[in-house]
Amino acid sequence: MSHTFLEQLWIARYVILNGIGVTVSISLLAILVGSVLGVFVGLALVYAGAILRLVMRAYTDIIRGTPVLVLVLASYYVSSAVGLDLGPFSAGVLALAIFCSSHVGEIVRGALQAIPRGQTEAAKAIGLTFTQAFTSVLWPQAMRQCLPAWVNTAAEMVKASTLLSVIGVAELLLRTQEIISRNFMSLQFYFLAGGLYFIINFGIERFGKYVERKTALPS
């Protein structure tokens, strides 16, 4: 067996790229589905009637009070037990999406409630209906407010994707472990995996700051 890290890296290049691809797809799916769900959760937390608000509150508190790994394991084991043939990838993404939705729901709720009351009053005073006021005045302001926390949640999703290795999904971390089991270069390859995750998350952070700058209002 060739004994330098670079040689081993070259041999394993497709496995690693494959792993990155799976990690990215897990993260993207979880973020997209979770965010869409999360917006509805957030809207319900602010505007829905008392019963629905309570249900949503319970939902977010329970999901946020549970470790992600528990959500992943539960989703994996429970789905197969109740007959839903999801498989590890879908079960894992489902768990992450639900986790993401509870965080995004809180973020959206916070952003909407942070808008000064005067904005709603001014919108009412010129005769806008609630729907008009929400789409033209409230939501654009809330979205700007959400952005930093949402970018943070996106990075958390990438980190959480590593948990799917525990249920056997062949994302980057599991692939790294496979490679190491062949060539025993754990130091080098865990370092590499760490480096790759760092680059992805750091990139997300930087991109978020860029978008924040671009959408900032001139003052």
């Binding site: 000064p116 005067g118 904005q119 009053e121 001014a122 919108a123 010129i126 005769g127 806008l128 005045v137």
Partner: peptide
């Protein structure tokens, strides 16, 4: 909402839409 449009109001805190 329709009736509100018949009056105009200016507020102490201006309440301009910042975006």
């Amino acid at each position: 909402a329709r009736q509100r449009a018949l009056t105009g109001m200016a507020f102490q805190q201006f309440n301009l839409f910042p975006h």
